[in-house]
Nucleic acid binder design. Sequence first.
DNA 1: TGTCACAACGGGAAATTTCCCGCCTTCCAA
DNA 2: TTGGAAGGCGGGAAATTTCCCGTTGTGACA
Lengths: 213, 213
Amino acid sequence: MKIQVGVVDDMQLFLKSLCYLIDSFKNFEVSVDALNGEQLLEKMAKMDQCPDIILVDVNMPVMDGLQTAENVLKKYPIIKLVALSLQDDDTSVINMLKAGCCAYLLKDIHPDELQRALGEVYNKGYYNADLVNINYRRLITKAKLESENRISDKEKIFLNLSCSDLTYKQIAIEMKLSERTIDGFRESLFNKLNVESRVGMVLEGLRRNLVRL
Amino acid sequence: MKIQVGVVDDMQLFLKSLCYLIDSFKNFEVSVDALNGEQLLEKMAKMDQCPDIILVDVNMPVMDGLQTAENVLKKYPIIKLVALSLQDDDTSVINMLKAGCCAYLLKDIHPDELQRALGEVYNKGYYNADLVNINYRRLITKAKLESENRISDKEKIFLNLSCSDLTYKQIAIEMKLSERTIDGFRESLFNKLNVESRVGMVLEGLRRNLVRL
DNA sequence: TGTCACAACGGGAAATTTCCCGCCTTCCAA
DNA sequence: TTGGAAGGCGGGAAATTTCCCGTTGTGACA
């Protein structure tokens, strides 16, 4: 019996294509695919046998990779999760591994390496792509640093509103807070994101996927 | 004989996956794939028979979709090009169609629709996805509007430098121009991009793919 | 040869951003 | 119960951005 694989990605064409690719691997076959974490959980609830490995896209609209990983592992702790992402984004790597993923792969990986990675994850329980491996030490220090200055919900709302033509005064009115308070959020985010202007803050927020275009 | 398809995309995993998907279509098979336009032209130069249809990703690093389309059509005017893109970005749609593409498809299209699109492009010479079709009139007016206020090279350089913590004064020094001149670029871009702050300008630049994160 | 568009430049002023200072309340933990 | 960290608030000032008002030189074109 082939190893059962699940695939989650919000891009339909990529999802289905990837299923064909994986089905072409000798020892693997796709037993379930879904456009987001919610759909995945629904489909899996109706299945007799759950997949051995699930490939999860990190950036998805409805239930993102992180939430999906957490929800799947809560219900099915035996399943091995593999994160799949467009960017080599430190924060995402950290979060996905912390959530319990066995591997973090980039989407422009070569199909052969995907096959090798799936094999290793199934047999050894983990797989380290070179890219992630090399920077391991740096990631850990960065993880510590980021856990120290977590970004609060209000700061996130403020960051979102900052991604516009609005002035801080208008943002203050929008959030029903004083201009000073807004200024506090600004200052705090400048420090946490290590920038020194609103433009820098917005750009760093985009890079870290704290806000969307 | 099956209809020959070429595929160009810089994301290896997607490229190869898509090839498997297309090979699974009854009447189509992939005869050439490439990671960018340059590689495609190289590979095609060595081929006896060129493909009937080529699927081209719009956003690629080495030779982007637009350049690829132009270069391919210059050498092989018979080939039918189909643009494939992540976003439904008006400017990209306009440019790719203007460059001679027969269709503009989004990457989250359903595989069945891709097959239908390929069939129609081969038989009728074009395919209009609903999404593009609906907004045709708006696209034309927008194309006119954008052709009027084209963004110059210097403005693009300025826009790139604006995507940072640099002040306009520092940008002026960097570009070896006076602050006033920089201010002129700013004003001109504000008008062309229809924004009223540097943050808005940067965000609109990102949305229009004028700058990269 | 005029004039017309256009890139580059400049002064100045109002609005906004950035960065100081400090105050009060709440809530949690030592 | 006594900090002490964190969220919210306020005044003020310097730096930057935004928006006016212009001038000059250059090349294209009728």
